[in-house]
């Protein structure tokens, strides 16, 4: 995006210049620059939540739009995500200390027999960026992993991911077990992964199929808003 990267001294930019520069650097996947800029804004007294939402999340939102529109491709998105991860690592401990808004709690993991985690990791990062606390169970999770975590924590959402046609039916095993244990209705279940589709999500009894990380965030927000409305009704 910018060819004059070497000429820019980030600390000399005003806040009004630095925030769009962060968006550019995220777009270009420049992790070190992102980390430096996050520290600069924090040093200038910015609240961690504002750095997260105005600089990083907004930057990733632009990346997400250009990915959806075919302008950016997977490698560029991964580089941007890696850069955001650097910024998030600085902000995460500070967000808890400064009482940043918390939208909800989520457990996420790739299902048993499946080791693919790129999509899951993107969803985790974007959910955290949106204000969700996310427990990532990693890859190759049997039903017990999901249920143990749900039963031992205070969660609102279960997210499951699969990249293979052979592993995606396992999501139904998890949901059916939740039904058997009488805990299905306590959680919003979101599913995603390349071979899935909306019909599959409905057929296995998930609340929603999310085709990408941005949709997952929006869907999670909608379900949390509904939940709060029901509780306040």
């Amino acid at each position: 995006m910018s060819d004059q990267e070497d000429d820019i001294i980030l600390s000399e930019l005003s806040d009004e210049e630095l925030v769009p520069q962060i968006h550019d650097d995220l777009y270009d996947g420049l992790k070190e620059e992102i980390e430096e800029s996050v520290n600069i804004l924090l040093g200038r007294g910015w609240m961690p939540y504002d750095v997260l939402t105005k600089a990083l999340v907004e930057g990733m939102r632009i990346v997400g739009i250009d990915f959806r529109d075919g302008i950016l491709f997977v490698p560029e998105v991964l580089l941007a995500a890696n850069a955001m991860k650097g910024g998030m690592a600085i902000l995460k401990p500070l967000l808890a200390e400064t009482g940043a808004p918390r939208l909800g709690n989520m457990v996420i993991g790739t299902v048993k027999g499946d080791i693919h985690d790129i999509g899951k990791n993107l969803v985790t990062m974007m959910m955290e960026g949106a204000g969700f606390e996310v427990k990532d169970l990693g890859i190759n999770n049997p039903v017990e992993n999901y249920l143990d975590e749900l039963e031992n924590g205070d969660y609102d959402i279960l997210g499951m991911s699969a990249l293979l046609t052979t592993t995606m039916p396992y999501m139904k095993v998890v949901i059916d077990t939740m039904v058997e244990k009488g805990m299905r209705d306590d959680y919003t279940v979101l599913v995603g992964g390349a071979p899935l589709n909306e019909e599959f999500g409905k057929a296995i009894g998930a609340d929603a199929y999310c085709r990408d990380a941005a949709v997952a965030v929006e869907t999670a927000k909608e379900f949390m808003a509904k939940k709060h409305n029901q509780m306040n009704a």
Binding site: F73, V74, P75, E76, L78, L79, I118, N121, I139
Partner: peptide, 19 residues
């Protein structure tokens, strides 16, 4: 090339780290 590994070898772990 489509995975960008010719230009960004640092992505190797993200793509194949679990294999």
């Amino acid at each position: 090339k489509p995975m960008g590994l010719d230009r960004h070898p640092e992505l190797l772990e993200m793509y194949f780290g679990n294999y």
